[in-house]
């Protein structure tokens, strides 16, 4: 049974604005599911529905085997939530926050102390445990927020943009923890605007645009939908050299239309094809000015499916 399942999920706000418009999802147990979308695409609304913070106005959503609309209490017992803009009380210490969260989940006091110690150690905040959260750095806040979502060992963990605004080191620490949790069997539903994050962490990715899922699959599947790896080559010499180079490149794969004066050829063998290509050109006496192996990225997928770059994408958008 999927850990998260939605059928024709809808959420309409006042003024007939459909933030979520017929979303079908099936996230398998033990999977990391990356949910991508620009601001206003319906990403956060979907997460709020799945975490029982908002009722759907149409369709169904089942999380950990429970219907979010008819059995929200059971859903809440089964999920952990670390929401965007980590909602933390600056006056509480890290330890107090975990204690409160454990209390909210009905964990007996006899177990709470040990649990807090374990979680603080797990997220590397043992030394800062008794400091007020207001003194924490951005990365520490995300880590304590993550720890608070884990107090009851949830079956499904929702992480809403867990690394937005973090420095690379803090981001990597969160990624490591998410991978470790997933290795332990926790299903992770991750929303992000960092394509690199989805690419690295997610087993499967769903792209939402204007409230609808416009693409879904593994990162490799999605990327293959928008093209295969290709070489971009600039050669020295005039038209004659270019024609000769194109002939040589034709033996390695499909020739693509030139881009900014550079020849493009699809290569099935990836980086392994680079040496033979260079040798073939050399044998014809063609000097290579520059050569670049270009692989499709999730941003290409995003552009292909939605017609726009993802805000906050770590891939530089191409000039218009």
């Amino acid at each position: 049974m999927p850990a998260i399942e939605t059928h024709d999920l809808e959420r309409e706000f006042e003024g007939s604005v459909k933030a979520v418009d017929g979303v079908d999802l099936a996230v398998q147990a033990g999977e990391i599911y990356g949910f991508l979308g620009p601001n206003g695409a319906g990403k956060t609304t979907t997460v709020r529905i799945l975490t029982t913070l908002l009722q759907p106005t149409g369709g169904r959503a089942i999380v950990a085997g429970h219907d979010v609309a008819t059995d929200p209490g059971s859903v809440r017992r089964a999920i952990g939530v670390a929401l965007q803009e980590a909602a933390l009380d600056p006056l509480m210490t890290g330890r107090e926050l975990l204690d409160l969260q454990a209390t909210l989940h009905g964990i007996p006091s006899s177990k709470r102390t040990a649990l807090s110690i374990d979680l603080l150690e797990r997220v590397g905040l043992t030394e800062a445990a008794d400091r007020q959260v207001g003194t924490y750095s951005g990365g520490m806040r995300r880590r304590i927020d993550l720890a608070s979502a884990l107090v009851h060992a949830p079956e499904v963990l929702f992480l809403d943009e867990p690394t937005t605004g973090l420095d690379p080191v803090s981001r990597q620490a969160i990624w490591n923890e998410v991978e470790r949790l997933n290795d332990e069997g926790t299903t992770v539903f991750l929303t992000t605007q960092y394509l690199e994050e989805a690419d690295q962490l997610a087993d499967r990715v769903g792209i939402i645009s204007s409230g609808k899922i416009v693409a879904e699959g593994t990162p490799a599947e999605l990327k293959s939908q928008v093209g295969s790896p290709h070489l971009e080559i600039a050669v020295e010499g005039g038209t004659e050299a270019a024609v000769s180079a194109e002939e040589a490149l034709g033996e390695f794969g499909k020739i693509l239309p030139p881009k900014d004066g550079r020849l493009q050829v699809e290569i099935a063998g990836g980086a392994g094809d680079i040496s033979p290509v260079v040798r073939a050109l050399d044998e014809r006496g063609i000097a290579v000015a520059s050569l670049e192996l270009v692989r499709p990225t999730l941003d290409d997928v995003f552009v292909d499916k939605t017609g726009e770059h993802l805000e906050g994408s770590t891939t530089d958008p191409e000039p218009e």
Partner: peptide
């Protein structure tokens, strides 16, 4: 406003 209350609402309390 700051989102803290979501933490309480998302809990089974």
């Amino acid at each position: 406003e700051q989102g803290w209350f979501d933490r309480l609402l998302a809990s089974p309390a």
